[in-house]
């Protein structure tokens, strides 16, 4: 479903050339729960960004659901992200002036879903992620774990093909982080949504059905694990 073919990416930082990815190839099937692990600077975030169509590969290509991403215009990439990709960020990135409900329903509003359907789906999903009764709270009145649940709901509400989570538990304590991982795993099982998340935390790696280790921009290992 997602194919990463010989992707290279180099950054120029002043006079320093950083080779973030040096020919990464990866095939990810629908419904996988994949963790991409590696130390800082190994290329995890860069790989996620390229799969998520928010960054371009210097060479190589990415196919999402049979759709080749390379060479697409900025507008086309925006439409792919809008319809097919959900993001969960390390620092939640909720809009502070919107309530939990509004932060989640925003993703459906972007797709032009009717108010009635939007409301039904958002309320159901907020209940599913354990936020029933907190719909009207703004992020400032939610704990870190609750905020990340809102972010997970926001990523899932449009039934995306993939959810990309860049170190989703890094800003959470271990108990809350585990709860979020459990939530994502449950959703992965129930809905069959593909999750790809990056981490350097062993506990997080253990949640993945498949663990792909990156080192210096290359895949060091790629192993399937029993859940």
């Amino acid at each position: 479903m997602i194919a990463v073919n010989e992707v290279h990416k180099e950054y120029i930082d002043g006079e320093t050339h950083v080779r973030a990815l040096r020919g990464v190839s990866l095939k990810i099937e629908g419904g996988e729960f994949l963790s991409i692990a590696g130390p800082s600077g190994s290329g995890k975030t860069t790989l996620l960004n390229i799969i998520g169509c928010i960054d371009n590969a210097d060479s190589g290509d990415v196919d999402i659901d049979g759709d080749r991403v390379g060479g697409k215009s900025k507008k086309e990439l925006t439409e792919i992200r809008r319809a097919k990709i959900g993001f969960v960020f390390q620092s939640f990135n909720l809009i502070p002036v919107l309530t939990a409900y509004e932060n989640v329903s925003m993703a459906l509003s972007l797709l032009g879903v009717s108010d009635a359907e939007n409301r039904e789906r958002t309320m159901a999903l907020l209940a599913e992620v354990g936020l029933e009764g907190m719909e009207h709270r703004r992020p400032s009145r939610l704990s870190g774990g609750q905020q990340q649940r809102v972010a997970v709901a926001r990523a899932l509400i449009k039934d995306p093909l993939i959810v990309l989570a860049d170190e989703p538990t890094a800003n959470l304590d271990s108990t809350t982080g585990e709860a979020i991982l459990k939530l994502m795993k449950d959703i992965n099982r129930h809905r069959g949504t593909t999750f790809i998340f990056s981490t350097h935390d062993q506990m997080v790696m253990d949640y993945g059905d498949r663990l792909c280790r990156l080192h210096d921009g290359l895949i060091e290992s790629d192993e399937r694990r029993s859940a």
């Binding site: 928010i54 925006t78 620092s91 993703a107």
Partner: peptide, 14 residues
């Protein structure tokens, strides 16, 4: 800026 980046990542058009 971070919020704008997030919105663009979610597919909000420029």
């Amino acid at each position: 800026e971070n919020e704008i980046g997030m919105m663009r990542a979610l597919g909000v058009r420029d």
